[in-house]
Simulated assay, not measured.
Amino acid sequence: MARPLPLRMLVAALLGLLVATGAYAHHGWSWAEADQIELSGTIREISMAPPHPTLRVETKNDGVWRVELGNPRLTERSGFVEGVAKIGDPIVALGNRSLDRSEKRMKAVRITVAGKVYDIYPERIRTN
């Protein structure tokens, strides 16, 4: 006769599945369009916190966008570290826009701040 799994094991298995599914969805690019866009504006907020450093960029005609960079190590490897940019700096971000057009969000592959270029995902850049 088969014994039922203890509740603790069942809960642990479900929790593991949820974490794995969330991590897969978070780290993929499936939420972003294949085509890349260029976004120009002014930095309004900078967060270097994990899981991904982010910028809030105010554009002239389209409001404020959330610009996601790579994971902290990848972002740092590009040279974009705390202190190289500040609120009020002009920025140009090249990246992939969210598939959800109601969301002003992009995943940047390259950013340019004060004339300095930071290639976050050089292998994904489709233009030079």
Score class of each variant (00 low, 15 high):
residue 125 I to E: 15
residue 120 I to H: 13
residue 63 G to K: 01
residue 9 M to P: 03
residue 66 R to D: 14
residue 86 K to S: 13
residue 127 T to F: 05
residue 119 D to L: 09
residue 10 L to P: 03
residue 126 R to L: 12
residue 45 E to F: 07
residue 122 P to A: 04
residue 72 P to D: 13
residue 111 I to R: 05
residue 72 P to C: 03
residue 117 V to S: 05
residue 122 P to I: 03
residue 19 V to L: 11
residue 85 A to M: 06
residue 55 L to S: 03
residue 46 I to H: 02
residue 124 R to K: 11
residue 45 E to D: 11
residue 26 H to T: 06
residue 126 R to H: 14
residue 60 K to T: 04
residue 104 K to T: 05
residue 121 Y to A: 13
residue 5 L to E: 13
residue 70 G to P: 04
residue 87 I to R: 00
residue 70 G to Q: 15
residue 25 A to V: 15
residue 62 D to F: 01
residue 95 G to Q: 03
residue 29 W to D: 15
residue 65 W to G: 01
residue 27 H to W: 10
residue 97 R to V: 10
residue 80 F to N: 08
residue 51 P to I: 02
residue 73 R to Q: 15
residue 20 A to S: 09
residue 26 H to G: 01
residue 90 P to V: 13
residue 71 N to S: 07
residue 31 W to H: 06
residue 118 Y to V: 06
residue 39 L to H: 11
residue 48 M to H: 04
residue 112 T to V: 12
residue 92 V to C: 05
residue 17 L to T: 15
residue 27 H to D: 15
residue 126 R to S: 09
residue 35 D to V: 04
residue 122 P to V: 04
residue 86 K to G: 13
residue 119 D to H: 12
residue 99 L to F: 08
residue 30 S to R: 06
residue 9 M to K: 14
residue 48 M to Y: 09
residue 29 W to Q: 05
residue 95 G to R: 02
residue 17 L to Q: 11
residue 92 V to W: 04
residue 63 G to F: 02
residue 88 G to N: 10
residue 38 E to Y: 08
residue 82 E to Q: 11
residue 117 V to N: 06
residue 88 G to C: 12
residue 103 E to G: 01
residue 74 L to R: 15
residue 79 G to V: 05
residue 84 V to E: 02
residue 13 A to Q: 08
residue 11 V to T: 11
residue 19 V to N: 10
residue 50 P to Y: 09
residue 117 V to H: 07
residue 19 V to S: 10
residue 60 K to Q: 06
residue 14 L to A: 10
residue 95 G to M: 05
residue 124 R to D: 14
residue 4 P to H: 04
residue 107 K to W: 04
residue 101 R to T: 08
residue 127 T to P: 00
residue 113 V to Y: 07
residue 87 I to Y: 01
residue 88 G to Y: 06
residue 62 D to S: 11
residue 52 H to V: 00
residue 33 E to I: 00
residue 15 L to S: 08
residue 84 V to Q: 02
residue 79 G to A: 08
residue 51 P to W: 05
residue 123 E to L: 10
residue 74 L to C: 03
residue 71 N to L: 02
residue 84 V to M: 00
residue 85 A to V: 01
residue 125 I to M: 09
residue 25 A to P: 04
residue 124 R to N: 12
residue 29 W to G: 00
residue 69 L to V: 03
residue 52 H to R: 12
residue 33 E to G: 07
residue 81 V to D: 07
residue 56 R to C: 00
residue 115 G to A: 13
residue 100 D to P: 08
residue 75 T to K: 07
residue 29 W to I: 08
residue 6 P to N: 09
residue 112 T to L: 00
residue 21 T to S: 11
residue 50 P to G: 06
residue 35 D to E: 14
residue 20 A to I: 10
residue 5 L to P: 13
residue 11 V to I: 07
residue 32 A to Y: 14
residue 3 R to S: 12
residue 100 D to G: 07
residue 119 D to M: 03
residue 17 L to W: 14
residue 115 G to C: 11
residue 9 M to I: 11
residue 58 E to H: 00
residue 70 G to E: 12
residue 127 T to L: 10
residue 99 L to Q: 14
residue 104 K to V: 02
residue 69 L to R: 05
residue 81 V to G: 10
residue 100 D to C: 00
residue 102 S to M: 15
residue 80 F to Q: 02
residue 115 G to L: 08
residue 119 D to F: 05
residue 4 P to G: 01
residue 106 M to S: 05
